[in-house]
């Protein structure tokens, strides 16, 4: 039986089985899963145990004991590889997210800039829906409109207009000064 820190392997020749007992405090669950996945095409894999105390990985050969003996010697190496990969991924997660987000945003600067430009160029100053106007202004205009019944030009991009107006001039509730 091979014994490493937090790791033990037992080859049960009579039952054609290979059993690993792994300490999840040393080897993360993810590393154990990925290692098991690595051997999927060679053996049948069964996972059991307590994720806080001990993980039991049982492997059953698809083609005989020779295969199992080979896997037994490879499994620990791969577990260490996966553990290192886990550490590299974990410690770099934020930096990678930042790089990808920045790279993909930078890849479309024109579109974003064009959209922003479009928003800026919108005739939101005209405010056809009257959203940005104070209550007093609206009341004053109501009187005017009833006389002239003149309609405002409808917005071509109402959602954009609404967003930009909201952002630049916070709406005020009716009846509140």
């Amino acid at each position: 039986m091979k014994k490493e820190k937090g790791f033990a392997v037992l080859l049960k020749k009579n039952d054609n089985l290979l059993e690993f007992k792994i300490n999840p405090k040393i080897y993360t669950l993810n590393a154990i899963y990925k290692t098991a996945y690595f051997f999927l095409d060679k053996v049948y894999i069964f996972l059991d145990g307590d994720p806080k105390k001990e993980i039991k990985v049982t492997m059953k050969s698809k083609s005989g004991m020779g295969e199992l003996e080979k896997v037994a010697s490879e499994f620990y190496n791969e577990l260490l590889n996966q553990l290192l990969r886990e550490k590299v991924s974990y410690t770099n997660a934020k930096v990678r997210e930042f790089i990808v987000a920045k790279a993909l945003y930078n890849a479309v600067p024109n579109e974003v800039d064009e959209l922003l430009k479009e928003v800026e160029e919108e005739d939101w100053q005209e405010d056809p829906l009257g959203i940005a106007k104070t209550w007093e202004e609206q009341q004053a205009e109501k009187g005017e409109k009833s006389k002239k019944s003149k309609k405002s030009r409808p917005s071509l991009t109402p959602s954009l207009k609404l967003r930009s107006t909201k952002k630049l001039r916070p709406m005020k509730k009716k009846g509140k000064k």
């Binding site: 260490l80 553990l83 290192l84 550490k87 590299v88 991924s89």
Partner: peptide, 15 residues
């Protein structure tokens, strides 16, 4: 080996 992995230089090494 496990000792080396445990000493992983996470402050300097990128992905």
């Amino acid at each position: 080996d496990l000792n080396i992995i445990e000493k992983f230089d996470w402050k300097n090494i990128g992905f």
